[in-house]
Each structure stands twice: as structure tokens, then as C-alpha cells.
Nucleic acid binder design. Structure first.
Length: 650
RNA sequence: GCCACUUUAGCUCAGCAGGUAGAGCACCACCAUGGUAAGGUGGGGGUCACCGGUUCAAAUCCGGUAAGUGGCUCCA
């Protein structure tokens, strides 16, 4: 018998007969391990529990309680779903089934009408039947011919089989459950019994292979766990994510709305949302001015020629509103970006090397024609105001300015207590270069420069091809929305192109003309997206400095205490605090509840005792106790709170 | 833009084997009301998204348009 050598995570090496399964090996280690185990990780690849090992390698036994164990369960959930579907809808075709961050999906295409959520009951029932019957899931390696026969004319799986066969000497590994043959890879449990606890979640369209020119399949999402309480926790997590959604909170707290009569993606800011936005705007302008930025205002409309010169008309037209034909030959365009506007400011004067870095900033309103399906609340809109800035530097100032910009960003993030983000270096797509400005040398140079600066700063990042702006590579700061989507919040971009296009120059120490480099940057993103992000991060309970209403004053009895409340209010207003008296004819318990529901940071209750002692009874949002303090002390407390921004960890 | 679903009072939603609308909250009025999460009674409010079709009759069935939701594609 031929032997193979298997290395274990602890470094031990043992010999086994060739063809031995992970299951058999687990049993040699301990019966309790064999009980918990569901699969193996052999040479960094998940394999079935009963798949034979035919070569030397390292093996990790995968147990139920590991993340990889869940992957195996979800793979099994996917094939169970597909198998149940193929029995219910015999004409259905199948794409790939995969795992996601929180479960699994399978892509389907039904000629008699796509599956809808209304059929989940029926589908779940069929899946439960399969679980109850504890059907075996067989791992097989077939020839291309056998595999094609097994999938019986399904065009999508046929494509997969041909591709896999071409890559594996004509061999195709498949899993078979009932009548269904799954050609998508991934280790699975040996039988359906393990997928006892599952839930179908939603359906959504998805292009075959993620290519928009391909047909659209129906993707059915589900999730599964080994324990009921884990499923319940996951469903609760999903529910809480929905409650955190800025669209829900924005509606409940009356922050903003979008009116179909006015147009999709054109948000209205209600007084409370506008207060939050104004606070952010004042904050960031002050911060930038203190860092040497010069804030300007420029028109949101410009002659189309400006965007022809900048290259936007060539490379960004899809995202632009169509130009307005003024009838006399003039074409006006709603600007999609502010860079050309700031270039005009640079060009207004002859610039000396002594002027650089020149930092131009603006809360610049822009319009982009986003596709209807992309619009989402405040985070994806067609009219937006970007915290935009462009620094014009000499080539040898690039690195220093990049680092300073990054420092500014980190400082702002700290003020807002934003901690959950990743840096992404966004390069052009080398296979699709026509989307970008055509200058290989420029791209090579600037991409290398960005990477070197990040390495020099010792910051963690990941690299992504195809994410660059058309004019240059970017450092993006990626964050997550409540519902799990990834979004760019901040961005710093190097640009050698626009200075060329607009023939920018500065006079150097040598008295000659030189070409400056531009750094585009957005720190707090657009007001729309940033407000959406903060709303979700704070769950609508904005820290005091941002809260639309910071204090509510509740008199115990209007007739006796209203006068004192007014004095108190005036004192706070004089200190710039946003405060209201709740003098409605209601019980105070009712008013306290209203204040809590509206997530107002401070509730001040005032009765005889407070009047007598020139004090207030203070209750913080989310707490169920209150404390008595002098007015003086409360004013100091809230002012300290406001000036600390969001930094205090609650 | 694409696939599926959804659209009923300011908000959240019920009603629907076709017979011209209901609840809770909010709002208004009156009564009650002194201590930290909802006092009572009454009232106003809807061309059932919009356009068309089927029918004696459409919120309900069918088609179209718009907007929204879940995703995909694309991006701050």
C-alpha cells in the first residue's frame, strides 16, 4: 500500500495509507474530535470529510464550531436549496452556489417564471423533507463527458463544466444530492441531516458571472447554523441592522426625505437633518481653514467646454446629466466634479513655487446621473455636496502633502470617533485601460508613489485594480453601511493629468515655468453620505455636538415653573446650546418618553426644588437615573461635552 | 439600467375568492394633571401612487408608467 505523509497544525507528521479520508484520520486522533468534525482543510483547501487524500500535505480537521465549519454548512445549505428547487421546478437552470459573509446563495433561472419570496414556504418544506430523509451528498470526480451528461443541457453549468475540465485535465469534481449535480466547488457535509436549522432570506437578480451583458439570474439567499440559537442571533442581527438603517432613522427622526414629485435621488433636508449637516459643515470648514485651506464658492453650472477640456466629457459622460442647449450655441453642464472649477481658481493668477502647496477647498455641490437602481437614501444620490479640496503642489511636495492630508483625515475621524474602516489603494484596471486616461508611465509612477507613501507611514492597506478615478489612482477609505454594503467615505487622489490638460504651471526658483501636480481629496465625503454614515454609526443617537436638539426642558407644572424654564433656556441659548421647552399640556412621564424616543442628549426636569436651589435635574439619553446640579455646573458640563466632539467613549 | 417584489391617512400597517375603506401612533378640541418612557373622552384627515383595460361594479383582477425595497452592474 502506498503511503502519504500528513502534517498536522502542531507540526506532527504521520503516515497513512493513500486514499485515507479526513474522517478516518480524525478517528485516529480522538473520538470526540471525530464527532465534532465536518470536513478537512488540506493544503489550504476545504475538502469533504469523506474525500480521500492522495498526496502528502498539511491537514487541519475542521469542526462545527469553527468559521470554516460554517462555510461547509453553508455550502451544504446551497446544494440542499438547489436540489429542492430542481425537484420543485424541473425546468430550472442553475448557475453557481456560494457562501457569503452570513450565509449562502444559489443562482437560478426558471423558464416558467422566476422564483419569488412567496414560494419560500414551499421551498423550505421541500428542503426539510430532504433533511428528514437524511440524503447523502456524494463527492465524485467525473470526466467532462460524464459531467455534461449529468447536468442534462443546463447552459450555465455546462459553461462551468467546460471551464473546470479545461483547467483540470478533463476532470470535473461534483457533488450529487438527489437529482441535482452541483459543479460549483466547495466542501460539503456528507448528508443533509446537518442542515436541520436553516432559513431562506431573500431573492435578488444577479448577472450570470457578474457581467452586465449576460442574462440575469435569480439569486436565492439563505442561511444556516448548527444551533438554533445561532440562527436566532443572526436573524436578530439582521433586524437590528434594519433598525440602524439611516433611511429608517431619517424617517423616524424627521431628518430628510426624498419626494418622487421632485425626483429620485434629490433629497430634502428637514430642519433637524439640516442642523446636523450645518454642524458638520462648520466643523470641517474651520478645521480645513486652520490647516491652510482656502475655502471658495464656485458655480454648479459651467460651459460644457470646461468638461471637454478636463476629459470628463470623454471619460465620465455616462454619469453626467445631459448638457442644456441654450439655443444660441452655448451648452451648459451641471458639474459632476469640482476639480475643473478649482483649476480655474488656480489659473486666475500666475503662481510662484512660493505659493505651493496651494490648497483650495469648497463644499461643492455636484450632480451625477446615477442609474436609478443605484439610488439609496442619502448614501447614493444625484445631487450631492462634497467636502472637496484640491492641493496644487510641486512634484517634490507630493509625499509630504499626501501625508499631511492623511493626518488631517485621521484627526477628523478621531473627532467623529470613526474607527471601523480600511484603506484601499485603488489602481486602474490593467485589462481595461481605455476607461482611463492613456499614459502608462503616469499610471505606473503615481501608483508606485502612493504605495510607497503608505508603506513609509506603516499603514495597513489592500490593493484593488479597476477602482481608480479616470485621471489617477486613489487612496480610498472603505467603510460599511448598516446593511453590510461597502462604501468609500474619504479619498485622496493623485493627478498628473488635469494639470496637463489645463496647461497649469508655476514659476520655479529658477524663474522657469514648471508643471504642478494636483491632489484631490474628500475628507468627510459628501454631506449626504457622511450624514447617512453617522446616522447609522450612532443609531440616530447623535453625540451632543451634532444632535439637532441638545436639551429638552420639562417643567413639572407649567403654571408654576415655566418662568424658570424660560430663564434656563435663555441662559443655554446664550451659550449656543440648541434647547427647547416642552410646555405641552401633557404628563411629564409622557414628555420624558418623547425626549427619549427622539434621542435628545439631555433632559432637564424643573420643579419646586430646582427653582428653590437654582438647579436642574439632569437625565442623559439612554440612562434611567437623574442627578441634581446647579445651573452653572450644568452649563459647564454641556459645553465641555459639546467641545469634545464625539470623542468621549460612551 | 437589469431581475424579483412593493406602493392604502403625516408615520407603521390591516383590509383584497371584486360590492366605492379601517387600527395604532401623530394631529386638533375638551376634561384631568406636582417628579423622570404613553391619563381620559371626542373629532378632523384618504381620487387606496399615477394612466389605461376587463366588469353592472375595481383599493382588490390585467397591462403600462413612476417611485421605493432586496440584490446585480456601476460609483462619493
Amino acid at each position: 500500500m502506498v503511503k502519504i505523509k500528513v502534517t498536522f497544525p502542531d507540526g506532527a507528521i504521520k503516515e497513512f495509507d493513500k486514499g485515507i479520508t479526513t474522517e478516518a484520520i480524525a478517528k485516529t486522533i480522538s473520538t470526540s474530535l471525530a464527532k465534532k468534525a465536518v470536513a478537512g482543510n488540506f493544503n489550504d483547501q476545504l475538502i469533504d470529510y469523506q474525500q480521500g487524500l492522495v498526496e502528502d500535505g498539511t491537514l487541519k480537521i475542521i469542526t462545527k464550531d469553527s468559521p470554516e465549519g460554517l462555510q461547509v454548512l453553508w455550502q451544504t445549505g446551497a446544494i440542499l436549496l438547489a436540489s429542492a428547487l430542481s425537484e420543485l421546478y424541473p425546468k430550472m437552470h442553475f448557475g453557481e452556489g456560494k457562501t457569503t459573509e452570513h450565509g449562502f446563495y444559489f443562482d437560478t433561472d426558471n423558464v416558467d417564471g422566476q422564483v419569488a419570496e412567496t414560494e419560500f414556504e414551499k421551498i423550505s418544506q421541500k428542503m426539510k423533507e430532504f433533511v428528514k430523509a437524511n440524503m447523502t451528498i456524494e463527492y465524485k470526480v467525473l470526466s467532462e463527458q460524464e459531467a455534461l451528461k449529468a447536468i442534462d443541457g443546463d447552459p450555465y453549468r455546462m459553461e462551468l463544466v467546460k471551464k473546470i475540465a479545461a483547467e483540470n485535465n478533463g476532470q470535473v469534481a461534483v457533488h450529487v444530492l438527489g437529482n441535482f449535480v452541483d459543479v460549483s466547488s466547495g466542501a460539503k457535509l456528507a448528508a443533509t441531516k446537518g442542515v436541520k436549522i436553516f432559513q431562506l432570506l431573500s431573492v435578488a437578480g444577479a448577472y450570470w458571472k457578474g457581467v452586465s451583458s449576460n442574462p440575469m439570474l435569480q439569486r436565492v439567499y439563505g442561511t444556516s447554523f448548527f444551533k438554533q440559537k445561532d440562527l436566532e442571533a443572526e436573524l436578530k442581527r439582521r433586524q437590528e441592522a434594519r433598525e440602524r438603517d439611516h433611511r429608517v432613522i431619517g424617517n423616524d427622526l424627521d431628518l430628510f426625505f426624498v419626494d418622487p414629485k421632485v425626483g429620485a435621488g434629490l433629497p430634502y433636508w428637514m430642519p433637524k437633518g439640516a442642523t446636523i449637516r450645518r454642524t458638520i459643515e462648520r466643523y470641517i470648514i474651520d478645521k480645513e481653514v486652520s490647516r491652510g485651506y482656502e475655502h471658495v464658492y464656485t458655480p454648479i453650472l459651467a460651459n460644457l467646454d470646461l468638461y471637454k477640456q478636463s476629459g470628463h466629457w470623454d471619460h465620465y459622460r455616462e454619469d453626467m446629466f445631459p448638457p442644456m442647449d441654450m439655443g444660441d450655441g452655448e451648452m451648459l453642464e451641471l458639474r459632476p466634479m469640482n476639480c475643473p472649477s478649482h483649476i480655474q481658481i488656480y489659473n486666475r493668477h500666475i503662481r510662484s513655487y512660493r505659493d505651493l502647496p496651494l490648497r483650495i477647498a469648497e463644499l461643492g455641490m455636484m450632480h451625477r446621473y446615477e442609474k436609478s437602481g443605484a439610488l439609496t437614501g442619502l448614501s447614493r444620490v444625484r445631487e450631492m455636496t462634497l467636502n472637496d479640496g484640491h492641493t496644487f503642489v510641486t512634484p517634490d511636495q507630493i509625499e509630504e502633502e499626501f501625508k499631511q492630508t492623511l493626518q488631517l483625515m485621521v484627526s477628523v475621524y478621531s473627532d467623529f470617533d470613526i474607527t471601523d474602516y480600511r484603506f484601499r489603494l485603488s489602481y486602474r484596471d490593467p485589462k481595461n485601460t481605455h476607461k482611463y486616461f492613456d499614459d502608462d508611465e503616469m499610471w505606473e509612477k503615481s501608483q508606485k508613489m502612493l504605495k510607497a507613501a503608505m508603506d513609509d507611514l506603516g499603514l495597513d492597506y489592500y490593493e484593488a485594480e479597476g477602482e481608480a478615478a479616470f485621471y489617477g489612482p486613489k487612496l480610498d477609505v472603505q467603510t460599511k453601511t448598516a446593511l453590510g454594503g461597502e462604501e468609500t467615505l474619504s479619498t485622496i487622489q493623485l493627478d498628473f493629468l488635469l494639470p496637463e490638460k489645463f496647461d497649469l504651471h508655476y514659476i520655479g526658483a529658477d524663474g522657469e515655468e514648471h508643471r504642478p501636480v494636483m491632489i484631490h481629496r474628500g475628507i468627510v465625503s459628501t454631506m449626504e453620505r457622511f450624514t447617512a454614515y453617522l446616522t447609522e454609526m450612532y443609531k440616530g443617537a447623535f453625540p451632543t455636538w451634532l444632535a439637532p436638539q441638545q436639551v429638552t426642558v420639562i417643567p413639572v407644572k407649567n403654571d408654576l415653573h415655566l418662568g424658570y424654564c424660560e430663564q434656563l433656556r435663555d441662559r443655554l441659548v446664550a451659550n449656543g446650546v440648541r434647547v427647547n421647552i416642552d410646555e405641552r399640556n401633557e404628563k411629564m412621564g409622557y414628555k420624558v418618553r418623547q425626549a427619549q424616543v427622539n434621542k435628545i442628549p439631555y433632559i432637564l426636569v424643573v420643579g419646586d426644588k430646582e427653582v428653590a436651589e437654582k438647579g436642574v435635574s439632569v437625565r442623559r439619553y439612554g440612562q434611567d437615573n437623574s442627578k441634581e446640579v446647579k445651573i452653572e455646573d450644568f452649563v459647564n458640563e454641556i459645553l465641555a461635552d459639546i467641545s469634545s466632539y464625539s470623542r468621549e467613549v460612551k
